[in-house]
């Protein structure tokens, strides 16, 4: 599965209590940004990529690519599955197709993860500027 430090995975997005609390506190807080610009990974997968907790990684799908911080999952084992909390970072890489029922695909999107030591995790307003040219 590992091809030159790139791992094929399945991307899930979802709620966490940190994201839940963060969103109630207000979304321009750094707590909020920090709580949702992360990617929870299985420790074994992190070993394969040779990265440590908190390292920047680039997550790419057919729909986009975004840099987030890798975090060791407390919910392991779930090899081959990564988890990004709901938020603007996750939205860059989820599948917009609604298959005629109005609902995009937020879970189970094929993705790759690779270390990105030289690329920064964008802050919220930088991300919005980059994505929408507004904000």
């Amino acid at each position: 599965m590992v091809e030159k430090h790139k791992l094929k995975v399945v991307l899930l997005t979802g709620r966490t209590i940190e994201q839940g609390v963060g969103k109630e506190l207000g979304k321009i807080t750094s707590e909020y940004a920090e709580s949702v610009s992360v990617c929870y990974m299985d420790p074994e997968d992190m070993k394969k990529l040779d990265i440590k907790d908190g390292a920047n990684v680039q997550v790419s799908t057919a729909f986009g690519s975004v840099v987030v911080k890798a975090k060791k999952s407390l919910r392991a084992p779930h090899p081959g599955v990564i988890y990004i909390p709901y938020g603007p970072w996750a939205n860059v890489v989820v599948d917009p197709e609604t298959h005629g029922i109005g609902m995009p695909t937020f879970k189970g999107v094929p993705a790759t993860v690779e270390p990105a030591p030289d690329k920064p995790v964008l802050g919220l307003s930088e991300l919005l500027k980059q994505q929408f040219g507004k904000g």
């Binding site: 969103k23 979304k27 709901y86 938020g87 939205n91 917009p96 994505q131 929408f132």
Partner: peptide, 16 residues
């Protein structure tokens, strides 16, 4: 509500 933080990028783009 906060669709720009919950919609896929392509949808949010048109909204913006």
């Amino acid at each position: 509500s906060d669709p720009v933080s919950s919609f896929p990028r392509k949808a949010a783009e048109h909204l913006a």
